[in-house]
Design a protein around this nucleic acid. Structure first.
Lengths: 244, 244
DNA sequence: CTACCAATCTGGTATGACCAATCTGCCCGG
DNA sequence: CCGGGCAGATTGGTCATACCAGATTGGTAG
């Protein structure tokens, strides 16, 4: 007998499948902030994995301020309110766990707030290469629409390129996080093919305003664009309480 | 001989000291995005730790999109530009690694953009308990000033409580990340005791505007407040190129 | 009832081994 | 001399075991 792994699991699916099982496990227990969760050894046994795998997952959860490991004591849940990180939401989305309805609306509102200011800066600071990048993305978007593809990724590329034109790299990091955590919802939004042409037209209007160096017009265009998205989710969540 | 750990290191200092050594190691090599870094086994030997510790650190770096682990292949650096997360900047600050000068200004600019909008929302939506919380923080701030303490943490508490009053929890998460990554700089800012009274007075003005439900006045107050901070760092970085 | 001590539990860490896919380079046939 | 194919080295992924040292806990002795 060379090695006897209980489960001869060849490839355990996703990379962070353990985190994907750990998070629901925590959530289902309705644990409060400060509560202690089972020890590493117990979690390892419960999930049928080695302690190393558990420690790796917990290290990530700790970096994302979901959990706190206290040496010689135990593992404790963090307060989500102030300590929760946006990266935790990104991870959650990557694992396929949908956001709470409330959070969806908060994310869209925040996107509107940030991106309205972003296009202002973009209109004031844009360089030649920014315009070129934006034009390229818009051209790809037109092709995608003509080909009947889902505009979700092109939409994200447009908005991120817009933020990139502000020259503020930190700004780009923040907005990027929101697009990473919203990819599935965005794909659902564009599932209805009628929305893509409207979005694209609004993108073109923004491009024009930014190119012309008109912050007010750019901001107004972005505001209208994202208020539309906001209204969509607002209505959808009011009608069907089923989460998306 | 029961166990022969090469280095009988009892407590290896900080929790994530390995990450703190790993990041400079990567940075000093001037590696580009996509480059491969040494294997887990080599890193373990080089840093004199076990492979488990290396894997734990790499799991965190991967969650923060600093690194990508490809099975059967190697560990590769991610593109910082679009993929870098804000949590990575928080971690960096926790490890004592200062931000680049450029990033400091970008962070302050972003804070101003976000918080100006935050106080608008706060003025529109604030509840009784929000006002009460803000008042409590201001009272603590007055005490801290009277006692000659560093106002840094109270300053952060005020701004975060302001964002909390928007009712948008995601907003709070984002702004909180910036305060976590800026704590050391903020303490340095308030080292000069003359700044604390001015900040406190501006905070009071904001509180008044929010309490009165006047978004425009609140926004203006926050804008002036943070432009002052922005100007401070701008001047400081222009004079002394030494990082803070 | 209190003070103290020992067993136990916990996270932190190192070691060693195996798996499976990938990559590398050598060897052989054309 | 060139090109294809196979074997071995490499690499991340995983598990099991063992030990450390501080914290906790329970019971016992005073």
């Amino acid at each position: 007998m060379t090695n006897l792994p209980g489960t001869s699991d060849p490839v355990s699916g996703d990379r962070s499948s353990l985190i994907g099982r750990l998070l629901p496990f925590i959530a289902e227990r309705r644990l409060q902030a400060g509560d202690r969760i089972p020890s590493e050894r117990e979690l390892a046994e419960r999930f049928g994995v080695g302690r190393g795998a558990v420690r790796e997952a917990l290290a990530v959860l700790e970096a994302l301020r979901i959990v706190e490991r206290r040496p010689y004591s135990g593992i404790y849940l963090c307060a989500v309110a102030r300590q929760g990180s946006i990266e935790a939401m990104v991870l959650q989305a990557e694992l396929g766990v949908p956001l709470a309805e409330e959070e969806v609306l908060e994310v869209v509102e925040l996107r509107r707030i940030m991106e309205m200011q972003a296009v202002r800066l973009a209109a004031e600071r844009r360089h030649e290469e920014d315009i070129a990048r934006i034009d390229a993305v818009l051209a790809e978007g037109a092709q995608a629409i003509a080909a009947g593809e889902n505009l979700a990724d092109n939409d994200a590329a447009f908005h991120l390129t817009m933020v990139e034109a502000t020259g503020n790299h930190v700004f780009l990091r923040v907005v990027n996080a929101f697009y990473l955590m919203s990819r599935n919802r965005r794909r659902a939004y564009f599932r209805d093919g009628t929305r893509a042409p409207l979005s694209h037209a609004q993108h073109v209007a923004m491009r024009d305003a930014v190119t012309a160096g008109d912050p007010d017009r750019a901001e107004a265009a972005m505001g209208g664009h994202l208020r539309g998205v906001e209204g969509y989710w607002l209505e959808l969540l009011r009608r069907g309480p089923g989460e998306i």
